[in-house]
């Protein structure tokens, strides 16, 4: 149990990931699917960012002479790029939903499949 408590950040990230996955798989509304995808992305970002944190650390700005360790700069870079990618995918997905709604009059995956 302490094994898990020490890694509470990871456990929370996993729970968040599964919530997102559930929305992606079980929801029929396309917007909700996009929200699910975004929740999963956030979970992965949390996982990567917390992995790169140092206990009692400071941000990687090497100006003052601190004795505390720095947080890992590479994890932060990865997540920064990841966020930009996530935003881009979301923008494209939303524009597709807009067009699907204009053409089919619905954004429910079930109705789309049935009405084809």
């Amino acid at each position: 149990m302490t094994m898990l408590l020490d890694r509470a950040d990871y456990v929370l990230a996993i729970i968040l990931f599964l919530i997102g996955l559930y929305a992606l798989v079980a929801k029929s509304n396309l917007i909700k699917k996009i929200i699910g995808l975004n929740i999963m992305e956030t979970a992965v970002f949390i996982f990567i960012i917390t992995g790169g944190l140092a206990r009692d650390g400071s941000p990687p700005l090497v100006t003052q002479d601190t004795t505390s360790p720095y947080h890992d700069p590479v994890s932060q870079t990865i997540v920064l790029v990841g966020i930009v990618v996530a935003v881009s995918v979301t923008a494209l997905a939303l524009s597709l939903v807009t067009r699907i709604h204009a053409e089919h009059g619905t954004i429910e995956a079930d109705e789309l499949r049935g009405g084809r």
Binding site: L37, E41, G52, V89
Partner: peptide
């Protein structure tokens, strides 16, 4: 996007 996310997750894990 789902498959990309798996790849990103794996990259994060491998980096750690």
């Amino acid at each position: 996007a789902f498959s990309s996310l798996l790849v990103l997750f794996s990259i994060g894990l491998l980096y750690q």
